[in-house]
Amino acid sequence: MKQRLAAPSDVIDLAGVAGMGGIEAGQGVVSIGAGVRHAEVAGSPAVRGVLPALSALAGGIGDRQVRHLGTLGGSVANSDPAADYPAAVVGLGATIETHCRRIAADEYFVDLFETALKPGEIVTRVHFPVPDRAAYRKFAHPASGYAVVGVLVADFGGNIRVGITGAGPCAFRGTAFEQALADDLRPEAVDGVPVPDAGFNSDLFASAEYRAHLVRVMARRAVADLLGR
């Protein structure tokens, strides 16, 4: 709204709606209410214990003031191309729960500021499957903290998922990385993976070509983190 990308006639504040809060960690899933603020996720011992990559991701969103206000639901509903949470939604294969249905991560992000949500549909919770291990690395914009490029790599018993944000119009899976890393889970394994920059974002801060380069660099760093190197 403030960017003048939308001019709705009415705005409804969801902050007071019951049932959109709470963090539940266990049974292989971390479930977080859409109204939970980034600072709560970052500060949650339960999340840190079960899914530390998500804890670190939340603690790296924007800055402290932003984390005091921003919510998980707001982030995933907005589908900002440079937001952090979408990398986790895609990279962990999360399920988006709305007031009327569940949407799989791979079907959720559609385009720039566009999701599979229908008009009036409200995100109520996000369910993140807990991998064996995962790591998120981003090249943060120095002023806003937004991800110029961010990559989350997750290992589910040898099945690798890679979620990429910042590079394209919305978050997407790095399927070529997933295949390469499933064969050879080492940082060096991403070096030979092609990252075509067609359709990538290009702006004042980073060209599409540079973003493609950053995707590989952040993927390599995320794998190194995941392996504890």
């Binding site: 403030k2 902050a15 003031q65």
Partner: peptide, 28 residues
């Protein structure tokens, strides 16, 4: 300063938490 939640010059405490007042609607 920036009016886009980046510079922090507008930081105030809202119910005891530091927030950027340029990005809070008063009616919220």
């Amino acid at each position: 300063g920036c009016d886009t939640s980046q510079c922090g010059a507008c930081t105030v405490h809202l119910d005891g938490r530091a927030v950027k007042a340029c990005s809070v609607l008063a009616c919220q």
